[in-house]
Every structure is written in structure tokens, then in C-alpha cells.
């Protein structure tokens, strides 16, 4: 395990970006000589350590108040924040909700679906409150690197890791290292 600490977390996401990270395959082993993954949604430790990490990775869109909390926590505990995937950069598939409006989306999902019987829109105080508008992470906290893609290809993630580990924060991603869909 290397000495650069990395923490990942997800917001309103489908887990596809994390799968893409695992798709680094044998390069993941090579990467682990340089970094230590402290926490992620797919490991036992979920939250980034209070002592902080060098690189924080967020996938998923800001869709509810809980997502804002998670994003702010990650921001406060990392030196460089990387927003990975279309949802984290633009709102992505989750942002499609913006085309119909949050209330209409909730009604459709929980009440009006053809298979629904006695449906109810969840309103437990333990749940985050859905926002009127879905946005990318950049609308809530400062992001250092945006990597769009649905999901970003493993090669694109590898490029970003290589840059950051070399001490560089790319100002503009080369054309071949990102995509919008």
C-alpha cells in the first residue's frame, strides 16, 4: 500500500463509476503500490477519515439534502476533490428528473406506476429531502478535477490517477481522455 490516501464516496449514483474503477484490472494492483484506499461505499469503512486524505473521489449527482452533506464532508476531508462521471459533473441520468420536475418524478415513481398498489411517497425524517433541481457536485462544493463519462473509461480514470500522482492537476482534459456519454 502506498502513502497517498484516497477516499471515494457516492451520491445519487448507479455504482457504474466505481465499477469502472475496478475495471482498471491489473493496473489496480500497480496503483496500490502508490496509494491506499481508506474508505469507499464498497468496503467496510464507508466514511473518509477525519484526519483527511489527499484525493477524494465523488461519483453521482446532488439530488437530495443527504448528498449535499456527503459532498461537504468529503470536501472538508480531502486536499483534491475529483468529480467522476456524468452525474457528478453535469447531473447526468439523475438530472433527467429536471425535465419533468421533482414532484412529478416522485408521483410517477411511487404512486402512478402501473404496478403500484397503495403507493406512498417516502417521507421518513431519516431520509434526505429531494431537491427541486438535480445538479453536479460542482454546484455545491469546489471541485478540482472533473472527469465526465457514463461511466468514464478505466483508461480515463488511469490518466487522472497518473496525473495526480505525478503532482499535476490537469487544467483541461485532453480530448481523448473524456467523453459525455
Amino acid at each position: 500500500m502506498g502513502n497517498v490516501l484516497i477516499a471515494t464516496d457516492w451520491l445519487a449514483a448507479c455504482a457504474g463509476c466505481h465499477m469502472s474503477l475496478l475495471d482498471l484490472d491489473e493496473r489496480l494492483v500497480e496503483l496500490l503500490y502508490h496509494v491506499t484506499f481508506t474508505s469507499s461505499p464498497v468496503t467496510d469503512l464507508k466514511h473518509p477519515p477525519e484526519s483527511g486524505v489527499t484525493v477524494g473521489i465523488l461519483t453521482g449527482a446532488i439530488s437530495n439534502t443527504h448528498n449535499i452533506e456527503v459532498a461537504r464532508r468529503m470536501r472538508s476531508r480531502c486536499t483534491y476533490l475529483v468529480a467522476v462521471g456524468d452525474c457528478a459533473t453535469f447531473g447526468g441520468i439523475v438530472g433527467a428528473r429536471n425535465l419533468v420536475g421533482t414532484q412529478a418524478a416522485l408521483r410517477r415513481a411511487y404512486l402512478e406506476t402501473e404496478s403500484t398498489v397503495d403507493g406512498q411517497i417516502p417521507d421518513s425524517p431519516e431520509l434526505g429531502r429531494p431537491l427541486d433541481f438535480v445538479t453536479g457536485v460542482g454546484d455545491v462544493v469546489k471541485v478540482d478535477i472533473f472527469l465526465p463519462g457514463c461511466p468514464p473509461r478505466p483508461d480515463d480514470l488511469h490518466y487522472v490517477f497518473a496525473e495526480v500522482l505525478s503532482g499535476r492537476i490537469p487544467v483541461m482534459l485532453p480530448r481523448e481522455n473524456f467523453r459525455y456519454d
Binding site: F90, G91, T135, G136, D139, V143, F146, M172
Partner: peptide
């Protein structure tokens, strides 16, 4: 792609 627009510089647009 050509000019490396990897995110939106301005807040997400809301008008439909």
C-alpha cells in the same frame, strides 16, 4: 471536446 469542457462553468440551467 475540442475545448475541453469537462464541466459546466455556470449553474445548471432550470428553464424548460
Amino acid at each position: 471536446y475540442r475545448y475541453g469542457l469537462d464541466h459546466w462553468a455556470y449553474p445548471t440551467y432550470t428553464q424548460r
